[in-house]
Write a protein that binds this DNA or RNA. Structure first.
Lengths: 395, 395
DNA sequence: CCGATTTCTGGGAGCGCTCTCAACTGCTCG
DNA sequence: CGAGCAGTTGAGAGCGCTCCCAGAAATCGG
């Protein structure tokens, strides 16, 4: 499988291949003997390690600084307990040699990878196609790199991938994991738990028992509160017959948003609820359904901007004016959509980036965990991030 | 610098010292067993979450299988040159123990990380907000994981980040890098080159000399060809006064698309060219400008779907019907936009995922380098991926 | 001014794995 | 029937780094 087919039907090559002086600089001394391209080579063919500048080791730093490896190590790791004079000497040596610690070696002994896996299941999901994904990643990245941790991204697409990821997580290559977009019976949390890998979940897990599982730490936006806000707004502008287009009801976010709607309309007509699928198309279909069932509706809360855009289209086609005849509120505030619909969408905004950041922070805290033995001992707990209404033109 | 504080006395999380399975006794010939300090076995370094069995090592596998570490290693790495009977015994041991090789240890000696960095500069760019990002990542991920390589994502936002990333790349933690969204004077390629790290760039680099730099391998979509296709289509439906809204002209993709436009309209009126910024707003502004300068235009090629959507809006506001009065063609085929504009956008599609996949493949090939001894061919060269027209309603 | 501390340092044992190389199979041949 | 050989196997030397511990140097009490 790793046979790696060479491009097969490759698109047009951009440049004619020519013999260019390569300085390839492969620093892998062990690589199979690289054939020398005959042409004037700068350094090609160097089989022996000394070829490319061998990476300086702690040993060499110590030597240059005239101290022991141990002391050099101390300096590199903060320099606590090392006399200033020596510390400076070592630092100078580090500088001069351009020394960079070999993480693999360090990891081998500390058992700390300084790396966290970000596992995204179902890349087809909206988490992936929406800007959500990037925003999440950005938040995570910011938090992680502030703590000098790396982010290893793992995308799960099919069953085999689960195996792969499971093996990876078990492999001890990362110190923790951020798990995303899990469907109800996702094996990932269990895998992680089994190998003792700390993790934080993105979005409220929905499987049975999850709620009461103290070990399950997750971050989710306040979907329910957001749903309430949306309906509240519609009511506040005088709408009385408010429908909702939900997301797929096997997702907790959909469920929660619907619950928010129900919170304010506890005995609403079931006919005012239609299930969509988070796509514009689905939103349109749901809207049409709603219109057929309750032509008198004057407000709609769509559980996503994408669905709202589809709904808008259907409403327009049906000759309803927005917001005059029917007011519409979306959810997510995906600017690409909400700011550009006709009219611009009033929607519930969630701070995705913040969620990502929070997840990372929670995980990090969990990792450094045990550092607070005296305190109440409870590790981090789940967090719900706030949502807020962004009023534009549609409601 | 490095967080890595030794944690002083260490957390007192007690881990029963007797936990070790296999012969707690000296399993290695090395004399002088590890001295056990305090009564309560305080695992030096860190405390494992309770319940996490110590990871089995090759040593333990070998012991269980009754072979030497070397043989066990051979089996784990393919089993070449090991008698079938022994191989099976080892495999069984691996299975039983749930052995997973410690990558850090392996990396330490092989100098191979099986990891590739994906560096995304300017996360604010459209690369980031568009679904592009996710698509690229998906393509990369697929290719990489097929070769059993990991993807370490590094987002660069400010100057400090460059330092951080530079250090990381120099740190030898990855075998290669995929560099994205570089602005003209981006230091990343040089950094990578300096430390001898193989890399592939996403998008045609635009700095001086880049073109002739044989070492610079990049993957880009056929922007120029795409521009041609767009204009060609407009011409084919009888449009004679074709304008274009370009992207920021300091980006090669914008330049190339414009060049494509010019290829077919070599002596077009400069008034028919307006610069946008890849946002709907910018597209709208450019459209308005164009309309003011050449009210007679009957076709527009917008260099991005986002800009096209803005243009559509302005056209509508100006009372022009699309496509009757003015035909519009976009670029990118971001479905969220193109499929949902009014009317749906005819646009030039580029296969982003394929680009990502290609980048990864190129890098991988570079890494395994020398894999093509006979063909005196140089390593991989840059690749341009094709674009194609997707006809919807706007032209 | 000397022994008791306290603070620094260096020695050295590993972390888990790969890889070289010598040693040890069986066999085939001469 | 022993030499000659592929084919196998295991011992052992590291890879670069951290950290325990003992010894050295510096500091301090009396």
């Amino acid at each position: 499988m790793s046979q790696h087919q060479p491009t097969g039907a490759g698109p047009s090559a951009a440049q004619p291949s020519g013999g260019a002086p390569s300085s390839g600089g492969s620093r892998h001394a062990r690589a199979a003997g690289r054939p020398v391209p005959g042409a004037a080579g700068s350094d090609p063919g160097r089989s022996e390690p000394p070829g490319a500048a061998p990476r300086p080791t702690l040993e060499s730093v110590a030597e240059l600084a005239g101290v022991s490896r141990a002391t050099a190590s101390r300096v590199v790791n903060g320099g606590a307990g090392v006399r200033a004079s020596l510390r400076e000497k070592v630092q100078r040596a580090v500088e001069e040699l351009g020394y960079v610690p070999n993480l693999a070696a360090r990891t081998l002994v500390t058992r700390r990878n300084h790396a966290v896996a970000v596992v995204v299941a179902e890349p087809e999901s909206r988490l992936f196609s929406d800007p959500f994904f990037a925003q999440h990643l950005r938040g995570i990245s910011r938090e992680l790199s502030a703590a000098d941790n790396q982010m290893v991204l793992l995308l799960v697409e099919d069953q085999d991938d689960y195996q792969r990821v499971g093996r990876y997580l078990a492999g001890g290559h990362v110190d923790g994991a951020l798990l995303f977009s899990l469907h109800h019976s996702d094996p990932l949390p269990d895998m992680a738990r089994r190998v003792g890998l700390p993790f934080v979940i993105g979005g409220r897990p929905g499987w049975p028992g999850a709620e009461s599982d103290r070990e399950l730490v997750y971050v989710d936006s306040d979907n329910r509160g957001g749903g309430r806000i949306a309906v509240q707004h519609l009511q506040s502008i005088g709408r009385t017959t408010i429908a909702t287009i939900t997301g797929p009801l096997d997702q907790t976010s959909s469920l929660d948003r619907l619950d928010g709607y129900r919170d304010l309309l506890p005995d609403g007509d079931p006919d005012l609820i239609a299930e969509g699928d988070f796509t514009p198309d689905g939103g349109g279909r749901a809207m049409a359904e709603l219109l057929a069932r309750r032509p008198d509706l004057d407000g709609v809360f769509a559980a996503s901007d994408a669905m709202a855009s589809g709904a808008l289209r259907v409403l327009r086609a049906a000759g309803r004016r927005v917001p005059e005849d029917v007011a519409v509120v979306g959810f997510d505030d995906v600017e690409q959509i909400s700011a550009w619909t006709e009219p611009p969408l009033t929607t519930v905004r969630q701070d995705i980036e913040d969620m990502g950041r929070l997840m990372a922070r929670l995980l990090l805290r969990r990792l450094s965990g045990a550092a607070e033995p005296a305190t109440g001992r409870r590790g981090p707990t789940s967090v719900i991030t706030p949502t807020r209404l962004v009023v534009r033109g549609s409601a």
